[in-house]
Nucleic acid binder design. Structure first.
Lengths: 348, 348
DNA sequence: CCTCGTTATGAGAGCGCTCTCACAGAATAC
DNA sequence: GTATTCTGTGAGAGCGCTCTCATAACGAGG
């Protein structure tokens, strides 16, 4: 048996009023007599009538739905931002459709097309890039449709004219380096992704800038790259691990899952943290307190990113004033734990 | 500037054909001449026309959208199932709207109302209960609307007539107990939630059934309950910890976050795992290999639950045969790691 | 010749709503 | 008295599609 929604006409007929008057009751506008309102509300209640959101969207041109395109909901960064966004928008009567791109430009584009078909009122996107660091075609499309959009995490260049909420990634890398330098480390590996993600690249730049201030040259062979296929997924093992850890005394991992790769590979090669190698990660992971080693990390305010993005997006959608084009860069902090060790006391 | 979607009429006008012929082209049905098709497709491409999903839903009565109501997307169980569901349905042209109930019947009901307003084609729900173990009003509503629904994780009773995908929770608890008994433990605490969630209760029942087979009586004071406010959220600290661990030699935590509570509280009281207390948890957590202690756990096939639920739901929505009312119970396995210790070798 | 079936197209109804407009009766103003 | 406002209601257009039905042109079969 197919579902049968009763319509406003049914309510009108059963209550003895016109469709227009019923609409006035459910929409709370215009003049309606006390008598009519009571009668109509009784019928609505009796037949458990819910107005069709689809028909309303048809008329209003608004769906009260927001799309979210991100890497993978299983990633902690993604689900924390998703929850934060949802919390904000639900309070305004909006819902969230979540799409996972898995760092694939093709799937990202497909997601956008689906969301465009669904006629979402706005979009939050953490965009991915191709191997040349170029963003996908979604931004042309977004522009063409003039679809309210906020970009999170990975900052797209200002020329796209799309607001961005991100963190000071350069500062994050810089602080990680400064900290390791202060512990006496100078041979430091960077575990990162081959995919030229702008946020991750900024972390690296910040990191190397700090090293260069100390006269340490940036060496390409000290960058350990994780293939793009794995960069978007949870660390699952099976990859061919890096083995040349002996050259280094410390490691900086530029994102949460890369810390896991680093730890896994080090363990496999028999290096222990922080005895043989110090490790600084990026992003707090859940249940950190029971991790071993307890990772020293650069922390970004993940939930805050989602909240701000949601607020900016609602603002844009509901057109409350020309707040216009913004780029918000939130500060990062460092959480010092036990995965890092001073070389000075041990070796010098 | 507001977005302006161009409509099928615009395409019709620009191509010199009627709305009906354009509809034939985009819908790939009926007779269309080669000439007309080429002309219309060219115009569609040129103006980057996408048919309105809202209008289509208006006509077809289908939105190609599925709702998911669950506890909290940040919870690993939830985001793994969400991803699995999304992967399945996207392949069939469906999207997922995710709602978080946070174990609140009120929010659960609000979520359903929102989804009903959005006219989702189907629903996957991991339902919550009140303090009396009663399910919320959502199932009456679902029934009334005859909305295709699959229940996951928490099995609702057969009388509701709603298909269920869950795991053999009783067996999970039973195996956990058997294992601890085999290590010589007999004074075992159960860390669980005060909220009478049916899946969790079944784990407890299985656990106590095994104990009773050995003549060990179920003792109410050996159940350590976590207040419902915290049960739905990630373990965040701040709660008043249980302290009477001294009476026990082992602990069974009935869900992933409860393991965290247990570990945190034990640590706070100076007990170490598995030296002072053995711990068996439920559900693998991410990054387990770097946890300390490495938890021995009962493992449920989380992604499989989502996949099966999605497949059953699509089946119901698209009405492919009267597969009808199913209850799928997947098996659980045990992963033995280092949070458990035999009493026999140590104590006698 | 007329009658088919096939191909190609358009007119128009209808999905369930919102909202403008018209209108009618009551109350108020002059 | 008439003019004006306020209050309450309904008719109907229109949102962008899909799909049925009507129509017309054409070749084939009788």
């Amino acid at each position: 048996m197919a579902r049968k929604h009763i319509s406003i006409d049914t309510i009108a007929r059963l209550s003895g009023y016109s469709r227009a008057t019923v609409s006035r009751v459910i929409g709370s506008y215009g003049y309606v007599s006390e008598k009519a309102r009571n009668r109509i509300e009784a019928v609505i209640k009796k037949y458990n009538y819910h107005p069709s959101g689809v028909a309303r969207s048809m008329v209003s041109g608004k769906t009260h739905t927001i799309g979210l395109i991100q890497t993978d909901i299983r990633n902690a960064f993604c689900n924390i931002t998703a929850k934060a966004i949802e919390d904000v928008i639900v309070g305004h009567g909006y819902n969230l459709i979540i799409c996972n791109s898995g760092e694939s430009l093709k799937k990202e584009r497909q997601s956008l097309d689906l969301l465009l078909g669904k006629q979402v009122d706005g979009l939050v996107v953490s965009p991915t890039v191709d191997m040349d660091g170029k963003f996908g075609s979604i931004f042309d499309e977004i522009r063409r449709y003039n679809l309210p959009t906020v970009c999170i995490d990975r900052p797209i260049p200002p020329r796209f004219g799309i607001p961005v909420v991100t963190v000071d990634n350069h500062q994050g890398g810089y602080r990680a380096a400064k900290y390791l330098l202060s512990l006496g480390h100078s041979r430091i590996a960077v575990v990162t992704t081959r995919l030229p993600l702008p946020n991750v690249r900024e972390r690296e730049n910040g990191f190397y800038d700090a090293l260069e201030e100390q006269g340490i040259r940036r060496m390409e062979e000290d960058r350990i790259e994780i293939p793009p296929i794995q960069s978007g997924r949870e660390a699952e093992g099976g990859e061919t691990p890096f083995e040349g850890w002996g050259r280094f005394t410390a490691v900086f991992a530029t994102a949460n899952i890369f810390s896991i790769y680093a730890m896994r590979w080090m363990k496999k090669c028999g290096y222990s943290i922080p005895k043989d190698l110090s490790l600084v990660g990026f992003d707090d992971l859940l249940y950190w307190e029971f991790m071993s080693p307890q990772l020293t990390v650069i922390v970004q305010p993940i939930a805050r990113i989602g909240e701000l993005a949601a607020e900016m997006l609602l603002h844009a959608i509901e057109g409350r004033g020309p707040k216009g084009f913004e780029r918000i860069v939130l500060p990062v902090t460092m959480e010092e734990r036990s995965s890092t060790k001073s070389l000075c006391t041990a070796d010098g």
